[in-house]
Write a protein that binds this DNA or RNA. Structure first.
Lengths: 246, 246
DNA sequence: TAGTGGTCTAGACCACCGC
DNA sequence: CGGTGGTCTAGACCACTAC
């Protein structure tokens, strides 16, 4: 019999699935610190009242999903969302010396507005809810590489409006975590190609009408609530993407 | 002690890794039929002289790699490469009714030539080796969607030249298998965007200079030998790609 | 050295499939 | 029904890390 389950669960599911779901719930509820190992397998097995092998299977699943990381001898940790590498997957951004570094950011605008229909849908906002809108330029070696519009639900990110713009770092997700206690767990991205409009062309220092790659990203919390929607545009001649298919 | 190992193996590796490698070797050497289940876990455990759980772990790894498929009650099968869905991952190809169907193919040319340098490198050809070159147009509802150039090592695919062009189906990989006994296991793809040249523009019925998405694919056998290199170009306004990142 | 995850064993019983 | 993979147990010992 399974013990100490923290959430509603379907007992018809395999035990390891129930453990998996309960661990996700624990992470969502911030019951475990992000910088400390989670309880060791032996202890989890004891508290849940299952065999260690069953705990292992649940944890293996979570590792495969990218939610946990295991280190022999050190413990099992909650994996931080650290996918600013996403940009490097899609663009061959690089400095002239060839190294990869995170693009610098310049926030061009930030305000609270009535969100347009697509943002309401993506962020699952109430009809009357407001949203924070940002416009951001990303640069490599001072050369513009990406122009972004970013939308956040005002209700969850109200505190973000009181952070001085100059004190916001190049990476937003750590800022969300620090100021708003909102953790990004994963994101879905859609890539398309379009001709750039005049405003964006000027911002990116390219010809109006030249092709740009558009990355639309919807980012979620561990419990699958949409937290951020953003649309980024970069010159298509910088675009390159690798994938292995089977 | 492990028994009946069919290939050279490193005994310092975990048992399940050695089993994994041996099973890959068996598939590569075509010791197992593609349409029959492989030996059941119990039998594998007996022949290898290990516990069933160890065989399970090796098979789980192979399933995660996309090499095997398991079906409760039926058995474990070698997974066929069936990634013509690749096109659907990158392009929003669809008929007017919205359904997805495999694009029709028209082979425009096929000959044996001295391969250019990039093809020699990609296919790891000997300096004097020849290659089969094909040009192919793919259509949805008779509308051109993709223009492809395809290169094969002549040495392995000699038999392919004697297949009548009109009798080649819309999918090439089953043809390779049937006529040349070459099985595609996986492929690496690189996507970029470029302006289309005049010839290709005419073939695709688009304006010269308009953006096209370029998919370069290098396809491999189970034992990691490159078998086919192809480059496909399609109108960028049809392009759309989804990915989940963590 | 103590504690962690990694590997491996040898079983049991269940759920599903095809005959 | 027999045979397959799916779940689960209850251990053992090894490899690595932190202290």
């Amino acid at each position: 019999m399974i013990k100490f389950m923290h959430t509603a669960h379907d007992a018809r599911l395999p035990l390891y699935q129930q453990l998996h779901d309960d661990i996700v719930a624990k992470i969502t509820n911030k019951e475990w610190r992000l910088d400390q190992p989670i309880a060791p397998e032996q202890e989890l097995a004891k508290t849940y009242g299952t065999a260690v092998g069953t705990v292992r299977k649940a944890v293996e699943l979570l590792v495969a999903e990218g939610i946990l990381e295991r280190f022999q001898g050190r413990g099992t940790f909650i994996r931080r969302a650290s996918f600013d590498g996403s940009l490097f997957r899609f663009f061959r951004f690089q400095t002239k010396s060839g190294e990869r570094k995170i693009p610098a950011s310049r926030i061009l605008a930030r305000d609270v507005v009535e969100p347009p229909e697509p943002v309401i849908k993506a962020l699952q906002l109430d009809v009357s809810a407001k949203a924070i809108r940002m416009s951001r330029l990303r640069l490599i070696d001072a050369a513009p590489m990406l122009i972004e519009e970013i939308w956040l639900p005002q209700q969850k990110f109200a505190a973000f409006m009181s952070v001085e713009i100059d004190r916001i770092g190049d990476l937003l997700y750590p800022e969300y975590e620090q100021h708003c206690n909102q953790v990004i767990a994963y994101a879905n991205e859609t890539l398309t190609v379009e001709a750039v409009n005049r405003t964006q062309a000027r911002q990116l220092h390219i010809e109006p009408g030249s092709p740009v790659v558009v990355i639309e990203r919807l980012a979620f919390s561990y419990d699958n609530h949409p937290l951020e929607w953003r649309r980024s545009r970069g010159p298509a001649d910088q675009f390159q993407y690798h994938v292995t298919i089977r």
